[in-house]
């Protein structure tokens, strides 16, 4: 009676499985890797999908057959033969899964070790990642650069990440580049990533960390090595001269209201509680989530908690004109 529905279900399943093959925009898709780490991880995913769909098809095939063939019919007044079991069959469905799982286990282990090996050599870039309730800091110890929300890396280069948190647990996830590593109080974790092609790769915090966990976003910006070099030069020697009256006024207000938390390289603003704002005008996003437009900068400053509830950045008592001035100052941080 019901098999029709089951066929329908299988068809829907098949249609949904097409989702696996794309036809969706996939800016954060695990299925569209852009570096060796995510590629290795995807190959394990696909291997397990193949093996397990085999098992699923066999099991559901038997189910369908049984439901059609052995449904009760009119006139069956004798109960069916009572079977205790069958050693051969039972051995088969013990041994075959063992073999299939072994096939999955071997690459699982080798990949786990391959990912765990810390890359070495002169061509490796080191970055210290520091997560705090709801933002990310990226420090390049060998280059003397500190930035936030956007991790710039050169393409084709292995990047060693050292991960720490200042408060609760977070987890570093860039689906197209690599799976997660947690940031845990009292621990320093490591992982490595590499981007094979230039692009912006969306990163997410993947361990629940408080009210704004869902918007604790960041970007990995992969550029070809020459452009990356140019970026590091700009970050090391930023232009911090405010141009225009508003920006000059903004700098003063910044010194009074913001410098206790924010620092800017090349100035005497040295606050450490919030993100380093060096080169802020070049950022793609404000606070990791809003497009970096003048309007959004003002929106952020006028009420940070409206964008990220629970954020440590307070609502600073400035009027609209003062906020515009501060925003103008930030516009000039190139």
């Amino acid at each position: 009676m019901r098999p029709k529905h089951r066929i329908g279900l299988l068809l829907t399943t098949a249609v949904l499985l097409l989702g696996l093959t794309g036809c969706q925009r996939a800016d954060m898709s695990v299925l569209d890797p852009a570096g060796p780490v995510a590629k290795m991880q995807l190959s394990i995913i696909m291997l397990s999908v193949y093996i397990m769909s085999g098992i699923f098809v066999v099991a559901m095939g038997i189910l369908l057959y049984v439901l059609i063939r052995y449904r009760s019919r009119r006139g069956q007044n004798q109960p069916p033969k009572q079977v205790e079991g069958n050693n051969v069959l039972e051995a088969i469905w013990t041994i075959i899964p063992v073999i299939l799982l072994a096939i999955l286990a071997v690459p699982t282990v080798t990949t786990a070790f391959a990912l765990d090996a810390k890359p070495t050599g002169s061509n490796v870039l080191n970055v210290k990642v520091k997560a705090s309730q709801f933002w990310w800091q990226f420090e390049y110890p060998d280059l003397g650069i500190v930035t936030a929300q956007e991790l710039h890396i050169p393409t084709g280069t292995k990047v060693n990440l050292q991960l720490e948190t200042t408060d609760v647990m977070h987890s570093f996830w860039v689906p197209r580049l690599a799976g997660k590593t947690d940031l845990i109080p009292g621990r320093t974790n490591t992982m490595w990533i590499q981007a094979d092609q230039p692009g912006e790769f969306q990163g997410k915090c993947a361990e629940y960390c408080g009210p704004s966990h869902g918007v604790m976003d960041f970007l990995v910006v992969a550029e070809d090595p020459r452009q990356f070099q140019a970026w590091t030069d700009r970050m090391k020697h930023p232009q911090v001269q405010p141009a225009g009256d508003a920006a000059v006024e903004g700098e003063k207000l910044f010194a009074q209201n913001c410098a206790s938390c924010h620092s800017v390289a090349g100035t005497n603003f040295k606050g450490a509680l919030g993100p380093n704002l060096t080169g802020f005008a070049d950022r793609i996003k404000v606070a990791g989530v809003l497009e970096n437009t003048d309007e959004n900068v003002r929106r952020w400053i006028s009420d940070p908690a409206a964008v990220k509830p629970g954020t440590k950045m307070p609502k600073v008592p400035l009027n609209e004109q003062q906020i515009s001035a501060v925003a103008a100052f930030l516009r000039d941080l190139k």
């Binding site: 019901r2 089951r6 279900l9 695990v30 995510a38 290795m40 991880q41 995807l42 394990i44 995913i45 397990s48 999908v49 397990m52 769909s53 098992i55 699923f56 099991a59 559901m60 189910l63 439901l67 799982l101 999955l104 699982t108 990949t111 786990a112 990912l115 987890s171 996830w173 689906p175 690599a178 799976g179 997660k180 590593t181 993947a206 361990e207």
Partner: peptide, 29 residues
């Protein structure tokens, strides 16, 4: 009967999750 395919799918994704390097991607998602 509804249990069977559903639970089998859950078991299948369970095995998929057990493969640690793949789980780095699935975890927490």
């Amino acid at each position: 009967l509804g249990f069977l395919p559903t639970f089998v799918l859950g078991g299948i994704t369970g095995v998929m999750l057990s493969a640690a390097p793949a789980d780095y991607q699935y975890h927490g998602s």
